[in-house]
Amino acid sequence: MDCGICYAYQLDGTIPDQVCDNSQCGQPFHQICLYEWLRGLLTSRQSFNIIFGECPYCSKPITLKMS
């Protein structure tokens, strides 16, 4: 499936590997796309290497662990 942010399947050789945990959403994202999206939200917060925010599609909580 394509990334829900950039709408591409491959981005710099990677495929969407982050998925919204909401079973009714399940939208996939590239890690870098989701990172940039969450960084741009005023409501997002970060604790060590984990960013907490809202899914761009369903607005439910989503987390991103940076590797």
Results as ranks from 00 to 15, higher is better:
L42T: 14
C25E: 02
T14W: 11
C3G: 01
D21K: 12
F48W: 10
L42N: 11
P16R: 01
L64I: 08
D21A: 06
Q10M: 12
C58E: 00
S44W: 06
L64E: 06
L11Y: 10
G40Q: 15
A8T: 12
S23F: 12
C55P: 01
Q24V: 06
Q46E: 14
D2G: 05
L64G: 09
C3W: 01
I32P: 01
M66G: 14
Q10Y: 11
C33A: 03
M66V: 09
Y9W: 06
Q10G: 05
T63P: 03
D2V: 08
P61R: 15
Y57L: 12
G26A: 05
L38S: 03
R39H: 09
C25G: 02
Q46T: 08
Y7G: 09
S23L: 10
C6L: 00
R45G: 11
Y7S: 11
S59E: 13
I32R: 14
P56A: 02
F48R: 11
D2K: 13
V19I: 09
L11E: 03
S67L: 06
Q18R: 04
L41C: 10
D21Q: 07
T43A: 09
A8C: 15
S44L: 10
T63A: 09
G26Q: 13
Y57A: 14
N22R: 05
D12A: 08
S23P: 10
C20E: 02
P61F: 05
C3D: 03
Q31K: 08
P28F: 07
L34N: 04
I15G: 06
Y35M: 06
G26V: 05
Q27E: 03
M66K: 13
S44A: 09
G13D: 04
C20A: 01
D12G: 14
F29P: 01
D21W: 13
Q10D: 14
N22P: 02
D21F: 11
C6R: 01
W37R: 02
D12S: 03
F48E: 06
Q18A: 06
P16K: 02
E36N: 15
C55L: 00
C25W: 01
G40L: 05
R39N: 15
Y9E: 03
F29D: 00
D2E: 11
L38Y: 01
I5S: 02
I15P: 09
T43L: 05
L34A: 01
I32M: 12
I50R: 14
Y35I: 12
G13E: 06
C6I: 03
S44G: 08
I15K: 07
A8R: 13
A8W: 04
Q31V: 14
L11H: 15
R45Y: 15
S47T: 11
K65M: 03
T14Q: 14
L41R: 14
L38N: 15
M66W: 12
E54K: 10
G26W: 02
C3Y: 00
I62S: 00
S47P: 04
R39G: 06
Q27M: 09
S23G: 07
Q18P: 00
L38A: 02
C55A: 00
L38F: 10
V19G: 04
